[in-house]
Amino acid sequence: MSDDRDEHKPVKPVLWARLLFVLPFVAMLWVSSYNRIEPMVAGIPFYYWYQLLWILIAAVLIGIVYRVER
C-alpha cells in the first residue's frame, strides 16, 4: 500500500506508455472495421461484443500506463 506521501508524488509521464491511448481512439473511430455481424459470440453479433470488449481493453491499457508511471 502507498502511504500519503506517495499519493502526492508527481507522476513522470512515460511517452511510449501514453501512446497506447491512441489505440482505443483508432479502434472506435474506424467504424467500418466493426460494422459486421460475423463472427458472432454466444449469439451476439460482432458489432456489439467487439465494442463492449474495447471497454475492457481500454481499461487494461489505462491500468498498464498507471503501473508504468507509478
Binding site: P24, F25, L29, Q51, W54, I55, A58, I62
Partner: peptide, 9 residues
C-alpha cells in the same frame, strides 16, 4: 459505448 471507451484515456 465507443463514447465511454474514449472518455477514460
Amino acid at each position: 459505448v465507443p463514447y465511454t471507451v474514449m472518455i477514460y484515456p
